[in-house]
């Protein structure tokens, strides 16, 4: 017993070192999982208050840039209020082929409501304000950019209807996903995180793939799972696919910057230029989803209990 105590006294530094390292590494390794509602993150009340105060101070110095950003966004929103060119151009009646028994072959006319003009339908804009995905406006009060796993903190929380797992948009595109939330603050995993993956599609031909960040350049990301036989064009728009219930369909992610065919892969290696500028992320929107529980239930019933592939 005495020897044991002597041993402990002699190596106390090493022992304490080992214990503390194990605790730290455990916290570090488990901090990436969505399920863990941890105390040790910037959404906790004390850190939230400090970060909010810091943002108040910094806000003052950013007023000019902020105004520009709001102005640009207002302009875009105002534009959405205008009806599209095609919306009021429907003909009162449409000609359809003659009835089969009509020997005079007279054209018939029908009202468009009964049989919509398919040409006009194709030009119609998609609903800009999808009522199934209400938005919660939020302010970014903390943001990292150049780590391998980046996070940002928002000034909204459970009280505003923010729940872990919801998507986060900025005016310029997808930016991340909520990881944990407390009453008034929430921490989100940025799109610039090694484990974030967003289901996406190329707008031109609806080929779907997934976007992830390789960990170096905060303005670029990779688009995976585009088969080699598909034609790609530099500048193609990449939007969310709507295949999961996190983002509505058609939210801008980025444009194709370059693509290469690698000899040993079945898929293109596509580099995207991200739409959102993560270096000055300020106002964002948390996407809540009304139909999500119903959708998740039906998908869980239909699919075998799959691993990560199903959760994208």
């Amino acid at each position: 017993m005495k020897n044991l105590l002597l041993f402990l006294a002699r190596f106390q530094g090493l022992l304490v070192f080992g214990v503390l390292e194990v605790i730290s590494l455990y916290l570090f390794v488990t901090s990436s999982s969505y399920q863990r509602a941890a105390f040790f993150n910037s959404a906790n009340a004390y850190a939230g208050v400090v970060l909010a105060r810091r943002t108040e101070v910094l806000d003052y110095f950013h007023l000019g840039a902020l105004n520009q950003q709001l102005l640009a966004e207002n302009a875009r929103l105002r534009q959405q209020l205008y009806p599209p060119d095609t919306s009021r151009r429907q003909a009162d009646s449409l000609a359809v082929p003659p009835a089969p028994g009509d020997t005079l072959r007279r054209p018939r006319y029908v009202r468009p409501a009964q049989r919509p003009d398919t040409l006009l339908l194709a030009q119609q804009r998609l609903a800009a304000r999808d009522p199934n995905y209400p938005l919660v406006p939020a302010r970014v009060i903390n943001n990292t950019l150049r780590s391998v796993d980046n996070y940002f903190t928002l000034n909204v929380g459970l009280a505003d209807g923010v729940r872990p797992g919801l998507g986060v948009l900025a005016a310029a595109g997808v930016v991340g996903r909520i990881k944990t939330a407390t009453d008034h603050y929430a921490t989100a995993t940025s799109l610039l995180h090694s484990k974030t993956s967003v289901s996406a599609k190329i707008k031109r031909d609806n080929t779907f793939g997934s976007v992830h960040w390789p960990g170096d350049d905060p303005t670029q990301a990779l688009l995976d799972d585009i088969p080699r036989q598909n034609k790609l064009v530099v500048g193609d728009t990449v939007v969310t696919s709507g295949y999961n219930a996190i983002f509505p369909e058609g939210v801008f992610i980025g444009t194709v910057a370059s693509f290469v065919k690698e000899p040993d892969k079945n898929f293109w290696t596509v580099h995207l230029r991200l739409g959102a500028d993560f270096s000055n992320l300020t106002y964002v929107y948390v996407v809540t989803n009304r139909t999500r529980p119903a959708r998740d239930t039906v998908e869980a019933r239909a699919l075998p209990p799959a691993g990560k592939e199903g959760r994208r």
């Binding site: 390292e21 730290s24 916290l27 570090f28 488990t30 901090s31 040790f40 993150n41 910037s42 990292t144």
Partner: peptide, 14 residues
């Protein structure tokens, strides 16, 4: 806590 890195800073500092 401020950087949301779990225990990364702690591990290196220890």
């Amino acid at each position: 806590i401020f950087y949301d890195t779990g225990g990364l800073h702690a591990a290196a500092a220890v």
